[in-house]
Design a binder for these strands. Structure first.
Length: 588
DNA sequence: GCCGTTTTCGGCCCGACTGTTTTCAGTCG
């Protein structure tokens, strides 16, 4: 069994941390962290790739790192890491996670005071020995104690509890509105930036930007908002604060002329910006939140829009969702030989909903209510797909009950104008990959989604065989939430994704981007790999009541982050076209 | 440690903030 990518990434990250403690130059440390991310996001087994000597095909992985990955796979450990672990105890690495303490200071504490754990650090600080170290002082010592205290009383915050995107956007927009409406906000423009603007799965802290002619007054008013518990700093450049729920808020302020620079800078991601600046330097330009400095003229040019920033660098405009340093800069440089950026899918491209629930299983709304709500959203069709008999949640839909449900759907479809209501089911994929309705019953349905809801712990090979068997079933139109992950709560089950994608592409089975904001499954990275493997995607809300049909937007966000166009997504097509093209009609 | 309109060595983004500093290093995003 291959070592999972996550485990390899963890090992590379640890090694990077250790090298940093050991005083390695920052670029070497950075190389490990970049490689760790690449491995974590890779759609294939990096262990298998390394075995074939092909891991060097991944960006940021060279011969040295490939060797280390091979060693890790063969012996379970990397020799260099073992050596360094003996030198720097794990408690020291833990100390570098405390705010305000990095590798340099951790190492200083280790060599000067022999500190090797948070506990030892605490004792030294209480005995006022930390302030005696050259370069440190009483304020640092107090900060250390506070950080240790906080880590103890808020253990969950050390693990960086993150907000899901909907909560982050809601909070960010509330704060932006609050600043807008504050007295100092008159004439100001306030916007949500950061990972929330990039529509990431989850968000660590809220980034806001503002342009105004009265920066200090605006920065001061952040602390007056009801959501804010404490303010760490206020200046003309912005403010940092924390909400009552413990979320960090970073406000950055500039002049109206630099709105584009500021928004671009603070939207990030950090990696996108770093890559952007490297590209700029090669062209004699220096990019920052203040503007674009031209070496040749010694002048800084400010931009009112982000588009101008990218244009100054010879790039096409890059949508925020793409700014993750996943090839978007090369694509945006199409004029100089890149592939060009895709025209990303939009909400208005969606013509129908193909996965939602009603009171027949665990939903809260009726067929007529769901269909009416789907029509309100402008959809042309909606498939009612309640859970199947063995799911165990809500009311079990026995085969007879499903037959009655089909009749109910037909009746609603007959009386409801303006939308086509389809009879479907979200069928359970059993342990062996079989489904829990007879084929003859499935054949009566207009739409069949198949999903795994149980037995997530089976091994990779068994799980892959299970899913591939379901994919190969001639009556399965789509696979629901194909990896089973819950964002920030549950990892995906072990599965060979390339094998699943190959099967889906071969059979014409759709793979879902489930738009429930807790799932967003397939993820952005996986959906992109799937489409590259010639899989067609379907984006579904998986709504359990009328208003959650609007969750479609989170699925669209994931699709956009996956570089998907309208053409990659099945439910952008009219029902007749979709039905004609699907596999049960293709194969016969 | 990676990488190449600077190809096998010598670079490798930019600024704010903090606390410790007599001019800057470390940390963070």
């Amino acid at each position: 069994m291959d070592l999972r990518n996550g485990a390899i990434a963890d090992a590379l990250e640890e090694l990077g941390d250790l090298y940093e403690l050991d005083g390695a130059i920052v670029h070497r440390v950075l190389a490990y962290r970049t490689a760790a991310r690449t491995v974590r996001e890779a759609p294939m087994s990096v262990a298998a790739l390394a075995r074939e000597g092909r891991a060097i095909e991944l960006p940021g992985i060279g011969a040295t790192l490939q060797e280390k990955i091979q060693a890790l796979e063969q012996t379970g450990t990397i020799p260099a890491a073992q050596k360094l672990r003996a030198k720097f105890p794990p408690g020291l690495v833990e100390i570098t996670r405390l705010p305000g303490i990095g590798a340099k200071r951790a190492r200083l504490l280790h060599t000067e005071l022999g500190i090797d754990s948070p506990q030892a650090l605490r004792e030294a600080a209480l005995a006022q020995r930390v302030r005696e170290v050259k370069g440190l002082g009483p304020k640092f010592e107090a900060g250390v104690l506070e950080a240790l205290e906080r880590a103890q009383t808020h253990p969950d915050e050390r693990g960086q509890r993150r907000l899901l995107l909907p909560q982050a956007l809601q909070l960010g927009q509330a704060l932006a509105r609050g600043l807008d409406e504050a007295k100092a906000g008159a004439g100001a423009t306030v916007m949500v930036a950061g990972s929330a603007r990039r529509m990431a799965d989850s968000v660590k802290d809220i980034d806001l930007i503002a342009v105004t002619t009265r920066p200090v007054a605006l920065a001061s008013s952040l602390g007056e908002l009801e959501e804010i518990e404490s303010v760490a700093s206020v200046s003309a450049a912005g403010a940092r604060a924390r909400t009552h729920s413990g979320v960090g808020v970073d406000l950055r302020i500039g002049r109206p002329k630099q709105l584009g620079n500021l928004l671009q800078h603070f939207t990030g991601s950090g990696r996108h910006n770093a890559a952007l600046r490297e590209l700029a330097v090669r062209r004699g330009l220096h990019v920052s939140e203040h503007g674009v400095l031209d070496d040749a003229h010694g002048r800084t040019q400010t931009c009112e829009t982000e588009r101008e920033v990218y244009e100054l660098l010879g790039l096409a405009y890059i949508e925020p969702e793409l700014r993750e340093d996943r090839g978007e800069l090369q694509a945006a440089a199409a004029a100089t030989g890149g592939d060009g950026l895709p025209k990303l899918i939009e909400q208005r491209d969606i013509r129908g909903e193909l996965h939602c629930h009603t009171v027949a299983s665990d939903g809260k709304s009726t067929i007529a209510e769901m269909a009416g709500a789907a029509r309100e959203l402008g959809y042309e069709y909606v498939a009612i797909t309640d859970h199947s008999a063995t799911h165990g949640f809500g009311n079990d839909v026995s085969p007879d009950e499903l037959r009655r449900q089909i009749e109910r759907v037909r009746r609603v479809d007959a009386v409801l104008d303006g939308i086509r209501v389809l009879a479907g089911s979200e069928v359970n994929i059993l342990r062996d990959g079989s489904l829990d309705y007879e084929d003859s019953l499935l054949a009566e349905l207009d739409w069949v989604v198949a999903s795994a809801h149980t037995a997530f712990g089976m091994g990779e090979q068994a799980m892959t065989e299970r899913m591939v068997r379901a994919i190969e079933h001639p009556l399965v139109d789509a696979i629901g939430h194909p990896t089973g992950r819950l964002i920030e709560r549950r990892e995906s089950y072990a599965i060979d994704l390339p094998a699943m994608f190959e099967a889906a592409a071969r059979t014409g089975t759709l793979l879902e981007i489930n738009a429930n904001p807790d799932r967003r499954d397939l993820s952005d990275v996986h959906a992109r790999s799937a489409v590259r493997a010639c899989v067609t995607i379907v984006i579904d809300s998986d709504a359990h009541r009328m208003h959650t049909l609007a969750n479609m937007r989170w699925g669209i966000a994931t699709a956009r982050r996956a570089w998907l166009t309208k053409g990659d997504v099945a439910n952008t097509r009219p029902w007749e076209e979709l039905e004609r093209a699907r596999k049960r009609n293709r194969s016969g």
